[in-house]
């Protein structure tokens, strides 16, 4: 369905640099909580209306290298993911420290899975 290119943690910055030099526009990044397996982060790039998706799978509590030194626009996205999922990024150009949307004292990460009790209907 969705064709993705697997990505490992140490390639993140290098691949971003490569895409940048090759003229790809960063569309966005998406984070998904996969429960026990940790998180998945997708890096979506676009060039001439063709999209390329990189899939990075990481266990929880991993610090991901930021790509905002390469793509400045990634700073908002990374700060948002930090707010919603609690995934830390190292060296964001402008680090809000988890307080982009949230107040500084909030420590629960709202977008991590909660078990939803299925109502019998």
């Amino acid at each position: 369905m969705l064709e993705t290119i697997p990505l490992s943690l140490d390639q993140v910055a290098a691949v971003a640099k490569e895409c940048f030099d090759d003229g790809w526009r960063q569309v966005t990044m998406s984070a998904v909580d996969c429960g026990e397996a940790g998180f998945e982060i997708f890096y979506h790039y676009d060039k001439d209306l063709v999209m390329r998706h990189y899939r990075l799978s990481i266990p929880k509590e991993t610090v991901v290298p930021s790509i905002s030194p390469v793509y400045f626009c990634a700073l908002l996205i990374e700060n948002e993911i930090r707010d919603q999922f609690g995934i830390c990024f190292s060296d964001i150009v402008l680090d809000f420290g988890g307080a982009l949307y949230l107040e500084a004292e909030v420590r629960a990460m709202p977008f991590c899975k909660v078990s939803v009790a299925e109502k019998q209907s």
């Binding site: 966005t28 984070a31 997708f42 400045f72 908002l76």
Partner: peptide
Amino acid sequence: YLKADGSKHMDRVRIRTPTFANIP
């Protein structure tokens, strides 16, 4: 970005709106 796991709920709905991309 949509992810569904075969239940009646979607697993993840990720919305990237244009203004979010236009703030940088």
